[in-house]
Write a protein that binds this DNA or RNA. Structure first.
Lengths: 209, 209
DNA sequence: CACCGAGTACACAGGTCTGTGTAATGGCTG
DNA sequence: CAGCCATTACACAGACCTGTGTACTCGGTG
């Protein structure tokens, strides 16, 4: 049996769909385009996914399982380091030309209520990220970890939305500084690395403009 | 001359395009749909706008000039009241069934780099909102008004993105509480109305789910 | 070898989209 | 009245979209 091949093909389709959907928009990419990009026939694609909707759902589910590259920084040890490292990771991703916002938020914005499944997955993802923060805040002994976790995800999503339209990785740094203030206010011992002066940065991805 | 009529027609088209584009997505709505909704012929629409792209641009420019309903609350007097009232206004808008995120962020997410004009307008809008905060912070004597203004818009956009996928107006409240902490940390005298306990709220727009 | 399953090539149905072309209508103003 | 102008009704081009049908190839396995 060519089971291995079959799995590879499905994964290849998902990989390509992921790249195209994410970078150019779900509605902007047709199944023909995806198939052509891989060099397979459209028929093959439809043998692996019953419809484009199914492909969209699989794309988002895959993004859910496989979180953004270099996100959970295994080097960061303590809970507070992990939390703050999130924003450094964001800044790195913002600086990439391939960053185009949160795929879940974008999908909901594009497809609206049209596809229930999309919103369900997006909701679940957002909640899982909130819980990630909450767990670490609880470990730090923060009293209202729930509320603070919500505030932190606001900063994350806010910086993502701002970078999406402004192309400015400094948004991640601003979010980190705000997060530091919120953490300190909750009694968390953040190092003195917070508000490290106004290192300009500003290296941008876009060419001239 | 039917100049008055012409203007009215253009405005009627824009009104309708605004509603449909915003609620259902720009790509999801065709020009036929817009014309049919108004009861005019497609030809008339194209007599007022040379292309759909021009209509999209005009839609966003109109949103820019005419900011969200009940946004600048003329009742709020002091600068700090105005700033905090922003989040109350957001909460009210979140509770409406007609709220579907930030039209500028959504447009950029939908259209990507495809349309330069869209991104330009979105950028300008985001910056204008940031400056709105900065002016008020400066009036309050905040030293680094620029940085704090950026952090506040992160909270605004974060709560908008979160509400878009979660349908939870409490996100605005969480943003307000975080903003209060940030303001206090910057030496601003916020009243004691901050963190007003955990009034549950939770009245939602969606029916069951 | 014979078979099967995955993939290919390709056409096509049926729908939608943007944008245009054309002839007719109807109201307002000179 | 005569003319103009916005608007209408409607067809259409040309592109793109999703999804299917069909006959074919080819490699591996019984």
């Amino acid at each position: 049996m060519a089971a291995g091949t079959k799995t590879d093909m499905k994964e290849r389709i998902l990989e390509t769909a992921d790249r195209l959907f994410y970078l150019q928009g779900i509605r902007a990419i047709g199944v023909d385009t995806i198939a052509a990009e891989i060099g397979i026939s459209k028929r093959t694609l439809y043998n692996h996914f019953p419809s484009k909707d199914a492909l969209i759902t699989a794309y988002l589910e895959r993004r859910f399982v496989r979180p953004p590259p270099s996100e959970p920084r295994p080097s960061a040890r303590t809970a507070v380091e992990q939390i703050l490292a999130t924003f450094d990771s964001l800044e790195r991703r913002f600086a990439s030309r391939d960053f185009r916002g949160c795929p879940f938020v974008n999908a909901v914005a594009e497809l609206g209520e049209e596809d229930r499944a999309v919103k369900r997955i997006a909701k679940a993802f957002k909640e899982s990220r909130r819980l990630w923060f909450r767990d670490r805040l609880t470990a730090l002994g923060v009293t209202d970890a729930d509320a603070l976790a919500t505030q932190l995800v606001l900063l994350v999503d806010g910086s993502i939305a701002q970078d999406l339209v402004r192309d400015d990785p400094a948004m991640a740094r601003a979010a980190k500084e705000a997060a530091t203030v919120l953490l300190r206010n909750a009694g968390v011992d953040v190092g003195d690395d917070a508000a490290p002066g106004k290192t300009p940065l500003k290296s941008k991805k876009r060419s001239p403009e």
